[in-house]
């Protein structure tokens, strides 16, 4: 799993997505091919740093072993100001989370490959104000 994590480090540590030069649609995670333009499209990488709003969320109570220590944690769909939607954890008290809540990206740990394994970092979100 090590090379698999490493390969996407750039896009996990930063919100780097892709933009189709033909139709200007933004994508996160980045895509190799624009599903709207297909061969007519051409993708370029783009930093998508933006605040966003929670459009849906859930508080997870039962999960796989990898996330047991994080329970209860929040998974949300976040719509950035540029329109891109991201699935991410939101770090806040579960009683605070609301649809429409303004959030901003932060750098956090997502997990690790055991106590002696590599650490998986990535982007989460926290309340913006």
């Amino acid at each position: 799993m090590l090379p698999r994590f490493w390969r996407k480090i750039k896009y996990r540590y930063n919100l780097i997505g892709s933009k189709c030069k033909n139709c200007e649609t933004l994508y996160y995670p980045p895509r190799n091919i624009c599903p709207k333009c297909r061969r007519r499209g051409e993708m370029e990488e783009l930093e998508l740093w933006d605040e966003g709003r929670v459009i849906s969320y859930t508080i997870v109570h039962e999960t796989s072993d990898d996330f047991k220590l994080n329970v209860p944690y929040i998974i949300a769909l976040i719509k950035l100001e540029n329109g891109v939607i991201i699935t991410s954890q939101v770090v806040c008290n579960p009683s605070e989370i609301k649809i429409g809540m303004k959030v901003k990206p932060v750098f956090r740990k997502y997990g690790e490959d055991g106590e002696d394994g590599v650490i998986y970092y990535g982007t989460k979100f926290v309340p913006a104000d």
């Binding site: 932060v106 740990k109 989460k124």
Partner: peptide, 16 residues
Amino acid sequence: PDIDEDTATISVEAAR
């Protein structure tokens, strides 16, 4: 620190 914070995440936030 939160359960998902460590020296690396704190460093990144300060640097950003």
